[in-house]
Design a protein around this nucleic acid. Structure first.
Lengths: 216, 216
DNA sequence: GTAACTATGCTTAGGCG
DNA sequence: GCGCCTAAGCATAGTTA
């Protein structure tokens, strides 16, 4: 009953391939028509179907002929240059996917760091146990956190000048930077813990500003 | 917040039109690539975009050129004949939609009839109150019901020959037909009520056969 | 083969930074 | 404008009749 995500590969089974073909062809034609209608753009689709009697299908504008002949009239260089063949399309897709993947990896790393730091704060583990390689990511997280914190503090300053200005100095990003640069985790991390406490204090002072909106 | 179903019409607002264009173009190209991959079929898409620098996009097979030139080589008659322009595509869509609509209308009518008949059976109203124009639909419902009933009875016969064979005669579709043909509702309808009772009896006799599976 | 159904997940309109 | 997010709607794989 649990449909697997359908591997993007040639469907071996003849009958299901044909079924898929029919459904998806219909889907594409509909989409093409919608694009043409919504955006007033000539759209043409060719499908060299081995299943339909006719080897081509045009779902769109009557004057698509004209577009086609315009295409023919262009110098060969210009049009081949700009044509995306399947290979280049796939390459594009892959590079996009790689980028997304990279981004997600980084994000995962940061989440992991947040967890580790949480554990440190609650006493489950100690900052000295953090892997050397993870210190960079850890630093990013802290830096990001400090940025948010400072933003909050500035908002706070506007509402309540006296109590918040003194906090601002402590929450400077310069505290976090050494972690990234030098890899000396302990001191900066203790600073961070202090800031946690500062955050608590701030929350007590100004309950109306929801500092817990911070993601961690 | 509640997105309306997006009217299928040219988007007047320039910026949202462009946004939609970009999203949907991406969508179509993806779909085209999927179709090509899953079914091993050459697929080509041309979009005469006013937004992209290049006026055409080909999302598919390298050898789409060949398909194109094959297309060019065909006699003009043959290819224009089989090309669907947007108008004919829309006409097709409309006729399909009309058919669906007709079917749904009929279905609605029958549901309505079922409701009316239920009310008759429960004494809320009387068969003589049924609109003359509705008698046909009413007859269809009854006929359908009788068909189901007979099928049930046949199943029953195989398990319990004696008690069911006498029922079968009563539940012949010939009882319902006069409604459709002659429009004389009352007699046939009373017959139907009798059959309801028969059904009840049958349920009592053979509780294991779930006659209530009948949709009404 | 075709049509209908349904659960699943992909696409996308609108909103936000 | 661009990219990201989310809810809503749509497409469709697998199944049944």
């Amino acid at each position: 009953m649990t449909r697997q995500k359908v591997k993007m590969a040639f469907i071996e089974n003849e009958s299901s391939r044909k079924a898929t073909y029919k459904k998806r062809k219909k889907g594409i034609l509909k989409k093409a028509n919608e694009l043409a209608t919504l955006c007033g753009v000539p759209v043409g689709v060719i499908i060299d179907s081995p299943y339909d009697l006719t080897p081509e299908v045009w779902p769109s504008r009557e004057d698509m002929d004209n577009v086609l002949s315009q295409l023919q009239r262009l110098p060969v260089m210009d049009r081949t240059k700009k044509m995306l063949n399947q290979e280049s399309y796939l390459k594009q897709s892959i590079s996009k996917a790689s980028e997304t993947c990279k981004k997600l990896t980084k994000e995962n790393k940061e989440l992991e760091m947040k967890e580790v730091m949480f554990d440190c704060l609650s006493g489950k583990t100690s900052p000295s146990r953090i892997e050397k390689n993870d210190l960079g990511a850890c630093g990013n997280v802290i830096e990001q956190y400090l940025r948010n914190l400072n933003r909050r503090i500035e908002i706070l300053s506007k509402n309540d000048g006296a109590s918040s200005s003194s906090v601002h100095v402590v929450a400077s990003t310069s505290v976090a930077m050494p972690i990234v640069e030098l890899g000396s985790s302990s001191t900066a991390f203790c600073d961070m813990i202090r800031q946690q406490q500062i955050q608590s204090n701030m929350n007590q002072n100004v309950g109306s500003l929801d500092l817990n909106q911070q993601q961690w």
